[in-house]
Design a protein around this nucleic acid. Structure first.
Lengths: 198, 198
DNA sequence: CGCTGTCAATACGGTGCCGTATGGAAGCGG
DNA sequence: CCGCTTCCATACGGCACCGTATTGACAGCG
């Protein structure tokens, strides 16, 4: 049949490109949409290429999970950590970060939906969640909340963040800065540090 | 709508049974698992039966959405009517209701995941969410919160409920009564009604 | 310049599912 | 009994996708 005219200008693909494309597909069409043939078409190659890089579809999905776990655990916390200053500033900054960022929520939501079905996605989520929630709990402790309150409130805050991601994922309007500032105020209620939260 | 008698051994199926079975499948395997042939097998019939009741798969999915919307909205209304007494009691009762309920969270979470992909599921969610959130907002207003605070806090509370459903859907432990009581306290902080909240 | 490793195209068998067509079988009222 | 409606089985054509060869293009290196 017709020429495969050496696709002009296209570079050769590595595993990273496949994972990136798969993540994109995952974000806006869900796990079940990340299939090897459509994905190959999207990348402008055939699945003959795919099966050179991955043993099977599942291997790609696992690679997507791995990549996300690495990014999710480090990215946000690092961004906040490097921001200098007091815990209250970090908390506000962390919370504000939730509102911004355009693509991350949809990826995360897709993985959460996926986690309801797949044990491995579930395990990744468990690790990421534990880490992030522990971080928030530490901030609240540093801001003067007693251990019990820090624990329950950090969990409530984390649930809210999950809710926000889910909410915008199915079309809800992002909460905006106002509600998030209010959240910080509520979280610090009765801690003596409330007045100083920015 | 045909007769409604099904009792003994080999009962014939009506639209309701298909919707119920589809909802079950939706709850614990996601939308993409709601397929005609597996579903038929689960009901012990062939798809010849299915296509008598529904024009196509999509019609079944729409019926599932309709049924859920009716139940989801009436559940809130029931919570309103059943809980006698003061708004603070209603709020506590409503919040406590989130923790209990066994199957509802997984159905709701599945529909929320679905809503990220399908416009109709999205529309149903928008209506249900608007109703429920408006109800919470009304309670907060009745408890003495000014309009702006009632609005932002009801939204935060609603996000938290969504988060809880998602959380347990992928294996997280339910929050339990403690955090929910704490939530009520935080929501009413500075309203003058906080002390009277149960 | 051939060799070898890397990435990709083509072709194939197999599976699961959709939707249609058609022909009963079991219920009911005449 | 008949005939109509309701529910279900069987059989078929078609599509999308998985995973497996098998072969081809092209790079860098010896």
């Amino acid at each position: 049949m017709g020429g495969r005219m050496a696709r002009a200008g296209r570079e050769r693909l590595g595993e990273a490109e496949w994972v990136a494309a798969a993540t994109r597909l995952l974000a806006d069409q869900g796990v079940d949409a990340v299939r090897v043939e459509p994905l190959s078409a999207a990348l402008g190659v055939t699945k003959g290429s795919f099966y050179w890089h991955f043993a099977h579809r599942r291997a790609l999905l696992d690679a997507v999970l791995d990549a996300w776990e690495r990014r999710a655990t480090s990215a946000v916390i690092d961004a906040v950590e490097t921001a200098s200053g007091a815990p209250s500033g970090r908390l506000s900054r962390l919370v504000a970060l939730i509102g911004r960022s355009r693509r991350a929520p949809s990826v995360e939501h897709a993985i959460r939906a996926w986690g309801a079905l797949d044990p491995r996605a579930r395990a990744v989520l468990a690790r990421v969640d534990a880490r992030r929630e522990a971080y928030v709990r530490g901030l609240l402790r540093a801001l003067g909340l007693p251990p019990a309150a820090a624990r329950t409130r950090s969990h409530l805050a984390y649930l809210m963040m999950i809710g926000e991601f889910t909410w915008v994922a199915h079309g809800g309007a992002p909460a905006g800065p106002g509600p998030w500032r209010e959240l910080v105020r509520l979280l610090l209620a009765g801690s003596g540090a409330a007045a100083r939260a920015t």
